[in-house]
Nucleic acid binder design. Structure first.
Lengths: 114, 114
DNA sequence: TCCTTTACATACAAAATAGTAGGTAAAGCA
DNA sequence: TGCTTTACCTACTATTTTGTATGTAAAGGA
């Protein structure tokens, strides 16, 4: 299998499919925030600096749809919702870690202002 | 070091920096095409299906600027130019391979039309 | 001199992605 | 009843990325 269709879009390489799962500005930060255990919505918002409500919500919804995370609702006084990694979500970390290593490598060989 | 500046832009995580090197639609296909050895411009154009001249040129220029590939010009009858991976470019393959594996994993657990 | 081949370049348009600003629902409590 | 907290949603705008179409330079050969 080399190319295939999903959700009315054609993919030519597995990497393109990987990217719809962890690509964009915010999906990886969200997955990393959940790496040490579930977090509620408000916690994610403070853990992940600079993220807006809109971005956080849309990316959480996409990750949930793709079965990378799941959403738990606690019916309480002020509502409580937590997000947790699924097994599929955890599978992403091999790639995420490899990307981190490559990024660090490129930082070291590049003139960067810290 | 957690955030830093490069080319007038601020980065908060090494992955963001990795992504400016291998992100976008065409950089990884180009790197993969060069994996088995240097290729000339015209060869890349046929190896990488669907790529346009504009995309191929701009991505080659960016990869060259970032020292991921280098450009060799042969002064000949019709001009000849080849592109070759540098050591830095080769460093990307650990991440690229990890992404490929994750992509394949997600393809398998997803209902995909092949 | 004109033609052909190779490797580009450039203006413009379209599409995808991200950000801004403001609003809402639910439910207990004063 | 009105207030507060948490977890969202929506319309609109801005920015970034990609694609389309067309053009050009160099150099040898007919």
């Amino acid at each position: 299998m080399e190319n295939f269709i999903y959700d009315k879009r054609i993919y030519y390489h597995p990497i393109e499919f990987a990217m719809v799962h962890i690509g964009g500005t915010w999906k990886i930060p969200i997955l990393l925030a959940l790496r040490n255990g579930p977090q509620r919505y408000g916690e994610l918002k403070t853990t992940i600096s600079h993220i807006t409500d809109k971005m956080l919500v849309t990316q959480l919804r996409e990750l949930e749809k793709k079965k990378m995370i799941y959403r738990s609702v606690y019916r309480q006084k002020p509502p409580k919702v937590t997000y947790t990694l699924t097994v599929h979500g955890k599978q992403a970390f091999a790639a995420i870690d490899a990307l981190t290593m490559f990024g660090n490598y490129m930082i070291n060989i590049t003139e960067v202002i810290s």
